[in-house]
Structure formats: structure tokens, C-alpha cells
Design a protein around this nucleic acid. Structure first.
Lengths: 229, 229
DNA sequence: CGCTACGTTGAGAACAATCAACCCCGGTGG
DNA sequence: CCACCGGGGTTGATTGTTCTCAACGTAGCG
């Protein structure tokens, strides 16, 4: 069987980018490629942290719950994004597929062994972690200090930038997640998300296209809104 | 001059814990010990990321601003906490002393050289970063989904746990930051923070002692509130 | 001894949540 | 084939938590 990694089209975005062709074989040797249906779980908070993942297609939501069911999305993952970094022996969050997705799954222990063997891989992971940390701080600013309009504008621009990084069109963006998912990411309710979309649409800032596509008709204006101007 | 690191009482909490006695000398060789007065800046968002820091006494606030001045604290740092991890060449946040503090300052480039020389140090840093990432996700849950009471209860318990980690009393905790700082950390206003403290006090959950000390009179109850029960 | 920064409390306003109705679409089964 | 069902989305009416504006108290400091 040929290695699935050799042909991996998003390797440059992933942890594996740190490795050379021959070294990637060592990752390929421990990988399992999985298909995950929409809504199916990848990780359950509180379970032993046995695996790490790389998303290769689709979209994944990562979240934490309060005991009464309130949910906070801590991130959406797209192809190339890494998942499963855990300091503790237990996952501190849950993850599910938003749409049908494929992921590479690696046993955590074996990855840790490779990290020790290849310090450049550990360096790459540290870079990814500090990038995520910066994103988390930006999200705290959003959650704590932005209003609904600013949150939605920031969210759309974030999706646009991430699509662009993956070589996808930056303008009519694909929004695969539900209004409820978006609300749980931005600290809003479904209704407020919907109303804010309608409001931005009526003001000509965005257009809602079929099949979950959104056109950023006035990107500059959205940037201003997002920054709190 | 004797190395300040040799006698460092909080080394076990810091990045330097990864190094052995003789190796710590290499950190000592590049360190500058600084005293920072209350309110004085350590890092300005947007400036070149030239240094990294270790807090050795006092307390530091880390924050981001919107252009109209709205502020979101992304963290409070206490002795042993690390600051300055930056993926980019520019700091993405600002930092100031809350109270008079001392910090160890290291040139970022030289630390990076040491990280390459000592992979165990890089590993330690990755561990610290993933710990911070988990804390950031917890804070997103707080900001996006908890109400004022739950936020304040969570905050007090967090201070208590962190004091305990440092060998300080877990119960009458010292709260060195102002109501305004706390509000900017929790996504609330000064007034709401003050009202919520008063409310918890009137219900017997906490006691406000002189000199910024707070007694967690009903810790169990606070835990329940913080979890959203 | 007054100034200023911080904290507290009150009254009213505002933004988002809640409760509710309705629409649309896709899937399913009679 | 079509009626039914359920999930997601939109919109409206009302409520409620937190913000805003304001006054006042207090403590530390020049």
C-alpha cells in the first residue's frame, strides 16, 4: 500500500511540513486515515488523550461544555489544522466533524517519540502552538469586548483569511457551520447571529448566497467594523 | 557578581527548570534583572519582539486593545510565569506591571539559540505553551458563556489555585488588581464587578478583608457557581 | 489637608437573550 | 406521489442582565 502521506496535498500546512520526504515515512507508518461523518465525535472531553489528529478535509468544531449544557466553541479546524495537543493525560475539550471530514490519526505516544527524535518537529509544533495562542488571545478580545456586529464581521473575515491560506477563494466564502455553531463560537445565540447576518445584508456589507456561501461585498467596511472603528 | 539564577527560588516553576545547575549558567549569562514600578509597561503591542521575560515577583497584566480603547486582559502573570512567546516578529499584546514587580529579561534571539542547543528546554516551553492554551480555552468558555457571578467565582478560585501552586495560602487570597482590571479580564465593567463582589459578600460566599485580601468563606459553593451548577 | 484614584451604590437605558411563531427544505413513509 | 415530520433559519415581542451615567464615600499621597 502506498503511503497516504506521500501524496498529501496539505502537508505544507501541517506538522509534517517539518520533515523531509524520507522522514515522513515514519509518520506514515503510524498514521490511520479516518472518515468522519457530519456530527460524529472525534474527541470527548474527559477521555484519555490517546491520539492526535490532523484534519485533511472537511471541517471540525472544538468545544467545551458547562454542566448545564452551555457550549463554547474554542475553534473551527480546517484542512491542515492540528488537534489533540494535550498537556494532561485527559482531553480538556471535545471535537466533532461539522461536515463529513477526513482526518489523520496518530497514537500520541508514538508521536511523542518522534518529537524527541526530530527536534525540528518539536520546534514546528511549538510554532503552531504559539500561533494558536495568539489566535486564542484575539478570540478573548472578541468574546470579552466586541458587540454582535463586530463579532460577526470578525468571524467572516477570519474564515476568508483561512480560506485564502489554503488556496481557496477569499471572497465568496463557504460557511459550513450552522447559525447555532457560529453563536456558540462567538458567545451569541442563534437568533442574534441570524439577525446580525440579516442586518449586515440589508446594509449591503454581505450577500447570502445559496449553499452556505457568503459574499463579502464591502470587505473594507467589514474590516472597520471588526476592529471596532 | 554571583549569578542571580543560582538562588532563584521559583526556578522550578519557570522555563529554567528544564536545565541543570551548570546549564542554568548559560541563561544567567544573558539575563537582565529588572525592577518595574506599578503601572509601568513591559511590552507594547506592535513593537518588535526583542525580549522574553520571566516574572520573579509581583504581578503583571497582559492585554490587547481595540482602537477605541476597549481593553481585554488576556492574562495575569505571577512569579514563575513566562512572557514574550511570539510567533511573529512583533508583539501581539501589551504587558504592564500591576504592582511593583521584578522580571528576568532575556534577548529573544539568544534564547532561541539556547532552545536549539537544549531540546529539553524547547520541550519544556512546549509544555508551558500547551498549558497556556488549555487555560485560554477555559477563559473562552468563561467569556462566552458564563454570567457575572460565575465569572467572578471562577476568577477567585483561579487566583486561589495559582497562589497554592506557589506555596502561598489558598484561602485568604491576595487580589492585587483593581476592579477595573478584573472587569477587563472577565469582560465586565468596574461597576458590575463591584456589585457582584457585594452580592457574593452579602450571601456569605466571600469576605472582603483589608489590603485587597479576600476570604473564600464558602469555597464549595463558589466551585458550584463557577461550574455553572 | 485637599486632591485624586478607586470603590460602591442607585437609576435608567440598551443590547442581547428568551419565548414564540412561522417558513423553507429535504427526507421518509404511507 | 404527496403528506408528514424535523431541523435549521428568520423574524417579532418581551424580558432581563449588564452597561451607562451619576453621585457619593474612602483611602492614600503629595
Amino acid at each position: 500500500m502506498p503511503s497516504p502521506c506521500a501524496a498529501c496535498s496539505i502537508r505544507h500546512l501541517t506538522l509534517c511540513a517539518a520533515l523531509q520526504e524520507n522522514e515522513v515515512q515514519e509518520m506514515a507508518a503510524i498514521v490511520t486515515t479516518m472518515e468522519v461523518g457530519a456530527g460524529e465525535p472525534l474527541i470527548d472531553e474527559g477521555q484519555p488523550a490517546t491520539h492526535v489528529f490532523n484534519v485533511t478535509s472537511g471541517a471540525v468544531r472544538v468545544y467545551k461544555l458547562l454542566i448545564d449544557g452551555r457550549r463554547q466553541m474554542t475553534g473551527f479546524l480546517f484542512p491542515g489544522d492540528f488537534l489533540g495537543l494535550a498537556n494532561e493525560e485527559i482531553y480538556a475539550y471535545s471535537a466533532e466533524a461539522v461536515t463529513a471530514s477526513t482526518v489523520c490519526r496518530f497514537p500520541r505516544r508514538k508521536v511523542e517519540t518522534l518529537l524527541i527524535k526530530y527536534p525540528k518537529m518539536e520546534r514546528r509544533l511549538l510554532g503552531m502552538a504559539s500561533h494558536e495562542l495568539a489566535a486564542a488571545q484575539e478570540q478573548m478580545l472578541l468574546l470579552g469586548r466586541k458587540n454582535a456586529r463586530e463579532k460577526i464581521a470578525s468571524f467572516l473575515l477570519m474564515l476568508s483569511r483561512r480560506a485564502e491560506q489554503r488556496g481557496l477563494p477569499a471572497d465568496p466564502i463557504f460557511v459550513p457551520m450552522s447559525r447555532n455553531d457560529i453563536g456558540d463560537y462567538l458567545g451569541l445565540t442563534t437568533e442574534t447571529v441570524s439577525r446580525t447576518f440579516s442586518d449586515l445584508k440589508s446594509k449591503g456589507a454581505i450577500e447570502l448566497l445559496p449553499a452556505g456561501k457568503v459574499r463579502l461585498a464591502q470587505r473594507e467596511h467589514l474590516e472597520e467594523i471588526a476592529e471596532g472603528a
